[in-house]
Structure formats: C-alpha cells, structure tokens
Design a binder for these strands. Structure first.
Ligand SMILES: [Zn+2]
Ligand SMILES: [Zn+2]
Ligand SMILES: [Zn+2]
Ligand SMILES: [Zn+2]
Ligand SMILES: [Zn+2]
Ligand SMILES: [Zn+2]
Length: 400
DNA sequence: GAGTTTGAAACT
DNA sequence: CAGTTTCAAACTC
C-alpha cells in the first residue's frame, strides 16, 4: 500500500528534509516526540499517518509499534468509527483541481504562511474548504469574501473560461488587493500598569508586601499549593513566573553547609530572615510608587524588582516548574533538607502543562482589560491578572 | 459549541 | 540553543 507522499504532517525536529550526500533534498523518515498520547491518538503524526513509530521517534510510553499491533488496530478502528477518513491521505488530488487538504485549515492568526498551517505544510494551496483568515498561502491563497463575490459575478457574466479551481487564487505571483484589515489584536500591552495597589492590610508587621495573598482573581479552582512558592519576603508568587523571573543564581555562600542543612535550621533561618526583613526597595512605576518586588512586567527579568534574594526555601521535587538555567532556582531544598540542582530533578514546563496548571488559569472578569474580559470560548486565556493587577501572559492562547 | 489537551512550530 | 510561547488540531463533554 503506497503511503501518501506529501502528507502535510507535522514533523518532529530532526525529521524534516535533510541534505543527502549528493546534495539532494531527501525526506527523512517521519518521527514524533509524543509524551502523553502513547502515540495512539491522532495527535501523534506517526499514528495519524498510519505508520508505526520508528527509530527516529523519541516518544515516551509508545504503543504504536508491532509489538502492540492489536492495540493499534483496536484504536484505529475506534477512531475510524468516529471519522472514516481519519487515516486516509490528507491531501486530495482530484481531477482538474489543484491538490488540496482534505479538511482545509482554520488558521486564524498565521495567514497560512508557515508550518502551523496544514495546507502550507503539505505544500498545497488553501481551498474553499479552508476557514482561514487573511490567507497568504504562497501555494495558493483562499479568496476572501470580497474576491469570491467578484469572481462569482464575473463567472455569471461571461460564462466560464474553463479554469477549474478550488476557490483558490493563483499562487504567489498574482498580487492581491490589500484591504485594510481590522486589527483585533490590540490587547492590553504589558506596560499599561494599573494603579499601584498598596496592600495595607497585610503590611502591619512590615513583613509582607502586596503579594502575600494568593491571587484573588483566579478562576474558581484554586491552583494547587505546589503552584505557589514564596520568596524570602514571604510574598507568594506563582511558580511559573517565579521560575523564569524571580530567581537568580545562588551564591556558593548561600548553599548551606551540611550540618546546617536541615529543615529545622532552614526554618530558623527563615524566621531570622523574616525578622531581619527589610522592605524591598520600592520603585517608581508608570502610575506611582510600587512596593513589591514581583511582577514588574515591563522590566526585564534581571531587574532588581524581579529578583528574589535567596534560594527558594520550599520547593518540592513535585514542583511543576523547573527553574531556568542560570537562575537562582538552580538549587532547591528537598524535604530531607538537602539542596540539589533543581533543573536536574524537575521537568520542563513544556512537558508538564495541565488544566490546573497555574499558567492556564485566568480571571473570570478582568476589570483592567480595556476590551472587557477574555472571551469565553476557544483557547483564550493568553492573559490573566496578577494579584496586584498586572496582566501576565499565560500559555493558553485564547483569541482576543 | 465551549473548553481542554496535545505536540510541533515559532520565537527569544 | 535551551527554554518558553504560540498555534491549530484533536479531543472531551
Ligand atoms: Zn507519537
Ligand atoms: Zn512516532
Ligand atoms: Zn511513538
Ligand atoms: Zn491555513
Ligand atoms: Zn488552508
Ligand atoms: Zn489559508
């Protein structure tokens, strides 16, 4: 059974074209890097294209192999019962038509001009089946409504000249009329700070600054405790922000000697630290004085305002977010009290996202946002509100 | 249809 | 270039 030549599948890194010895381009065997699907869902390109995984794959817990061929067959049957076309070639070569993607694409943001677009990936133009916005597919872009309308008028006037197409404009060379497109992407820029929120209620002992509270505005489900950490000032912050922005490399003097490296001693140290607490330097923000160290969105992560002054005191190995290389969080304290290199024990953020992932949580209502709260559908949680009102970017690509 | 999960592409 | 973000599709309910 000949497999589909140009499948348009996504390619795992290292699996794309490569130069052969003779200088020719060859297709490297397709491969995947699946971590959670066991390569038994259509997310897996090997499975999706009807192939077993192979030596180039770096998938985890892969089931998509000969050894499990019964299981694979079962799964395929199940999926085909939902969609009989699921494992058929995704590119259609119909007579008198340019090749097209079976289902078309639905690119809302990328204009079909890169490999996010399944049509572009397969080197075919967008067709009438595509629901793309502002299509600029170099292999042939879909007509927009205006062009479609014009074309239909022309066709009905001078009865057709034999050109068959898919509702596709001729490729690249034809210059297109550029209508000014409404920009719906003018989301609140990070530098538009709200009024500083002086959190008096928690300031009476001088220990805490604004971020002592868990974020007030999270969506119904509170993030698991492990999503939070606190710095030496007792401020709570969200780990994923912390991991990338709030830490800096731990000085060797700050790594405890063995005999002091106990939970008890750490707790004593923490109390001492709190006793010796000095208010973090305030700074003049766009709308006044800001007290806290954290979440200064329009300052670089290396800014003093975005740094904590000591290693995380409590950071379990279950913590989802691996502190960045070069970060303070290179070290964490295990329950035993031992300090260890965090980044060798924790998993990268990209490997561990989940629905309760703090990065994916967003505010139900967003008084700061000039365009109202993020829409309630789609993958639309790009932004959330931090405790003191700053917006920050999340993982979840909601549409604006 | 709304919302979540997934892994490659893109970005920095 | 390792780490993170963005993206559109697959998936679930
Ligand atoms: Zn796979
Ligand atoms: Zn594979
Ligand atoms: Zn696999
Ligand atoms: Zn597209
Ligand atoms: Zn398309
Ligand atoms: Zn398109």
């Amino acid at each position: 059974m000949a497999s589909c030549e140009s499948s348009g599948d996504r390619m795992n890194v290292g699996a794309s074209d490569f130069d052969g010895n003779d200088g020719s381009k060859k297709k490297r065997k397709q491969s995947c890097n699946c971590h959670k699907s066991q390569c038994l869902q259509l997310y897996c390109e090997c499975f999706s294209s009807g192939n077993f995984c192979n030596d180039y794959c770096s998938c985890k817990a892969c089931m998509n192999n000969v050894e499990n061929k019964d299981c694979v067959k079962e799964k395929k049957k199940e999926i085909e019962s939902r969609n009989p076309h699921a494992f058929q070639c995704k590119i259609i070569h119909a007579q008198n038509e340019s090749a097209r993607h079976r289902k078309g694409c639905c690119c809302n943001k990328t204009k079909c001009d890169n490999k996010y677009c399944p049509c572009f990936r397969a080197d075919v133009g967008c067709s009438r089946l595509c629901r793309c916005q502002g299509c600029k597919n170099v292999h042939g872009s879909k007509k927009d409504e205006h062009q479609q309308e014009q074309e239909e008028r022309v066709l009905s006037n001078n009865n057709n000249n034999g050109s068959n197409n898919n509702g596709m404009l001729n490729n690249g060379s034809s210059s297109q009329s550029h209508h000014p497109v409404a920009n719906n992407d003018n989301f609140l820029p990070h530098h538009e700070f709200p009024e500083p929120d002086v959190d008096i209620g928690n300031n009476e002992n001088g220990i805490y600054s604004n971020n002592v509270n868990m974020p007030l505005n999270q969506v119904s489900v509170a993030p698991a405790d492990s999503y939070y950490n606190y710095n030496s000032f007792g401020n709570f912050f969200q780990n994923h922000v912390a991991a990338s922005d709030y830490h800096h490399p731990l000085a060797s003097s700050q790594i405890l000697s063995f005999e002091n490296n106990t939970v008890e001693q750490q707790n004593i140290n923490m109390m001492l630290d709190l006793l010796n607490f000095q208010q973090p330097p305030s700074f003049l923000g766009p709308h006044g004085i800001y007290n806290n160290h954290n979440n200064v969105a329009d300052e670089p992560s290396s800014s003093i305002h975005n740094l904590s002054t000591m290693a995380p005191i409590i950071q379990s190995t279950h913590q989802q977010y691996r502190p960045q290389t070069r970060s303070y969080g290179n070290y964490h304290q295990e329950e035993s009290g031992a300090m260890n290199h965090s980044h060798q024990l924790l998993v990268p953020v990209s490997a561990q996202r989940g629905s309760n992932d703090a990065t994916n949580m967003h505010t139900p209502s967003d008084p700061i946002h000039p365009h109202g709260p993020p829409p309630s559908s789609g993958n639309n949680a790009d932004y959330a509100e931090l405790p003191h009102g700053n917006m920050f970017l999340q993982h979840n690509n909601k549409r604006h």
